[in-house]
């Protein structure tokens, strides 16, 4: 017992200050992209050509990046000879609508809080059931990590539960493989209403690198309506946490890193 107590003292207090203070993120993190269309010469397709998931388009001479398809890989940034596109370490990326993920360089419309009635129900206690439907275990790992002392998800009243019947919603990862479609639908049917769907990662939003494969369904929206989109490959845990807190109205859209209550 004494050894355990000594170990506890050695390991220290390790919970992040976020959201009371901005998160500490790796300087090389490829988070929210920065686009500067004024630097794009006419006809240049350098970034479009290297994008593995066709997330980039040039619309009226300006780059548009679908964050739902983007794998946040370094290819476009490296291919751009004009510095018109680079990733910043800003981890705030979650949105309430698929369309909001079509990023053209202007301010991203981050996830809005649920309506008042839903916030009354879920705002201080949200139980989620996770379903991996073809996820590669990276999104799953960074969801799991939210339950460690570092992120301590339960301090916000959010918990992952074992049974769909105990859940207020599903957190879904993976492109929804053909072989998981039925299991996902059954799990969804077992969640009592009102209920939420949260799609985590490029696969769950768009099929990710597997988009178009006959073995999968190009993401959750083909099966269920989605309330929160959290892009990334995988999203950083802070991106996921930020999205969840926004959904519950625990952050104001304008003051990131600040809790309302």
């Amino acid at each position: 017992m004494l050894k355990v107590l000594l170990a506890r003292a050695h390991q220290g207090y390790r919970t992040v200050a976020y959201p009371a203070a901005p998160p500490t993120l790796p300087d090389r993190l490829r988070g929210r992209p920065h686009l500067d269309p004024t630097k794009c010469p006419p006809g240049c397709q350098a970034c479009v050509e290297v994008c593995p998931t066709a997330a980039l388009k040039i619309v009226a001479g300006k780059p548009q990046l679908d964050l739902g398809r983007c794998l946040f890989c370094p290819e476009c940034e490296r291919a751009c000879p004009h510095g018109a596109l680079h990733f910043t370490p800003d981890a705030r990326l979650a949105t309430s609508h698929r369309a909001a993920l079509h990023f053209d360089g202007r301010e991203l419309e981050l996830a809005r809080a649920l309506d008042e009635q839903s916030r009354k129900l879920f705002g201080r206690s949200l139980k989620l059931r996770q379903v991996s439907a073809g996820g590669c275990n990276a999104c799953e790992a960074d969801l799991n990590v939210l339950t460690t002392v570092v992120f301590d998800l339960s301090r916000f009243g959010i918990r992952f539960v074992a049974a769909p019947r105990h859940a207020d919603g599903l957190v879904i990862t993976g492109p929804v493989t053909r072989n998981m479609r039925l299991a996902l639908q059954k799990t969804w049917a077992a969640v009592p209403p009102p209920k939420l769907v949260i799609a985590v990662g490029a696969c769950a939003i768009s099929g990710g690198p597997f988009a178009g494969h006959a073995e999968q369904h190009d993401g959750v929206e083909s099966v269920l309506p989605v309330d929160l989109f959290i892009p990334g490959c995988p999203p950083h845990p802070i991106t996921i946490l930020d999205g969840l807190l926004r959904l519950l109205g625990r952050l104001t859209p304008a003051s990131p890193g600040k809790e309302i209550s």
């Binding site: 998931t53 991996s132 996820g135 790992a141 493989t177 690198p209 597997f210 073995e215």
Partner: peptide, 27 residues
């Protein structure tokens, strides 16, 4: 349940998707 058809999609490569496939074979 996790079958995504990666091996079949690799034939004819390498192409732009090959590296993302490799990075997500087992994430």
């Amino acid at each position: 349940y996790q079958h995504r058809g990666i091996e079949r999609a690799l034939v004819g490569g390498p192409n732009g998707r090959t590296l993302p496939y490799m990075e997500t074979l087992a994430g």
